[in-house]
């Protein structure tokens, strides 16, 4: 069955000014991601993984070439347009969780829905669903400081997933977690990917994550050196 591309990257180049010269972080990237993919951009530090993820997430723009996300070229978007794209279609999961410390678990998950101006009842239902997915219904009144690292990352996943975005971008999501928590988190994301058909794109060099990927894009010095579909046993 042919799947539609929700992300298309063409001849993408990203250069950063360094002193009087320039550093090329991404050099001629061509990629396409389909709905429901569970893909990872892997490579050593400095290979350009996070930069590519930032451009896909409309947090940064390409120097040359283009990235089209949900039919919109991120380079052509205004700041308002980019914010709208992130608000409606994208979810982010960070290495350091980045929960808002003064808010409870419930309120952290609620925040993206407030930006979407959802009604109270819709919001309540969506938050309860999201917390159920990540198994944190008993912690809704806890603050991030009262949670373990694994629990914090589960809250971050619930926050990214609560609005049911088409794409979730996860930058080193397991870097601060132990092996057991990493596996739990990844299983959870895999389950959400399968149930909700959400596209997950990871930037990682963690073997624990790589083991779960269905597609592995290897990046080296800003170039795609390998793009492989991984057959999981039983598939």
């Amino acid at each position: 069955m042919e799947q539609s591309s929700i992300i298309t990257i063409k001849e993408l180049i990203k250069r950063f000014p360094v002193g009087k010269g320039e550093f090329t972080a991404l050099n001629g990237i061509n990629l396409a991601f389909n709905t429901g993919e569970f893909a990872g951009i892997v490579g050593p530090s400095g290979s350009g993984k996070t930069t590519l993820l930032n451009i896909i997430g409309s947090l940064d723009t390409a120097t040359e070439g283009k990235a089209v996300v949900m039919g919109q070229s991120t380079g052509d978007l205004t700041t308002k347009g980019a914010a709208k794209l992130r608000r409606k279609h994208l979810g982010f999961i960070f290495q350091t969780y980045n929960l808002l410390p003064v808010y409870t678990v419930y309120e952290n998950v609620e925040f993206p829905l407030l930006l979407l101006q959802m009604s109270d009842s819709e919001r309540r239902k969506a938050i309860n669903d999201a917390l159920e997915w990540v198994g944190l219904t008993d912690k809704i009144k806890s603050r991030p400081a009262q949670l373990s690292g694994g629990e914090c990352q589960r809250v971050a996943i619930a926050r990214a997933m609560v609005k049911k975005p088409e794409i979730v971008l996860a930058d080193e999501p397991t870097a601060n977690l132990d092996a057991a928590n990493s596996h739990n988190i990844l299983k959870m994301m895999l389950k959400l990917n399968e149930e909700l058909k959400t596209t997950f794109i990871f930037a990682t060099h963690d073997d624990k994550v790589i083991k779960y990927l269905k597609r592995k894009i290897s990046l080296e010095d800003g170039k795609v050196v390998k793009d492989e579909i991984i057959k999981i046993k039983g598939d």
Binding site: L59, K80, A83, L85, R86, F92, F94, L115
Partner: peptide, 15 residues
Amino acid sequence: YGEIGVRLAIGEEKG
């Protein structure tokens, strides 16, 4: 700035 970064990533507008 950290909090602002999260809010921007989630989709809040700079203004």
